[in-house]
Amino acid sequence: MKNRLSPYYPLLPVFVAYFALFLVGRNVEGTWQLVATLLFYCALGQAFNIFLGMTGYVDFGYVAFLGVGTYGMAIAITGLANFPQLGLGIVAIGFVLAIIMATLLSTAVGAVALRLRGAYFAIATIGVNEGFRFLIEGANLWNGSSGMIFTAQLNEILGRDLASRVMTLWADILVLFIGALAAVVTLLYMKSKIGYALTALREDEDAAKVMGINVTKYKITAFITSASFAGTVGAAAWALKTPYVFPPEVFEIHYTIEAIIIVMLGGAGTLLGPLVGALIYGVSKYYLSIFLPGVQLFIFALVIIFVIVTFPEGVVGVIKRKTRNTAIGQYII
């Protein structure tokens, strides 16, 4: 029955979903924009889940990592615009820079805040995005509050054709790969000591310590992993897709709210949850914006309270519980 690949079966529904999304977007006229949005939500949820879902800690300043990732790409493109011969290499450097900046910020925040327990951690993070935004604006870093626009540089580096294809198609496909990669990493973590340690500390941090788990180490691991993915999401979905960056936009708490809704709705700490949450959220937001414009957040705030009170394990959490020890169960974790 058991074979060496069976631990990886749960990735199957994830990949199938991504592939289906891609096919729909490419083949059904006029759906790519919606698909691109859904891919962004999938990647955002998948990345956030590695921290919120696996540790049970909530980071209200999570969007800051997308923000610095966007800046990472922006800095690479504007800084290296004089070396157009590097071409796509500059984009690669941008991703590296995005990861480095998100890692640095998450290490700094994590080193302070992850020593703190639950509520105090949440309080410490609530101002991270605003704090960083005000640092950029206040100290006039990277053009301060005027932001950076780098469409011209992107055109110069990649040539007009490639640049426009990057903006309209490749950026979104990159986001798809980031989301899928985040899912793979999530599963690898789940199956390794890291996953066991995170489950233990999420359920009972003191007991976990006594069991020999260095909780700070594992929390920071999850935090930095999650933040790096967020950084690449920012670099691809924001900087490459729309080559400009303004501090108030990329540090907008709104995106943290969306990430929370996606993860909680789908099922915090499950592999498939963020994807399911992203699809439910993205599609319903799309239709709400057509039929009931302006009330999406109102409805989702109600939904999130409802989910927390009635089924905190989320959609996939419930399915996972119901299908445990069945044939379908081995695909859903």
């Binding site: 066991y196 340690a197 489950t199 999420r202 359920e203 009972d204 003191d206 976990a208 069991m211 700490g269």
Partner: peptide, 15 residues
């Protein structure tokens, strides 16, 4: 103080 959401097997494996 069990790790409530994990299975008994996983709990003991953590040990």
């Amino acid at each position: 103080r069990p790790f409530a959401s994990a299975t008994v097997r996983e709990n003991v494996a953590v040990g």
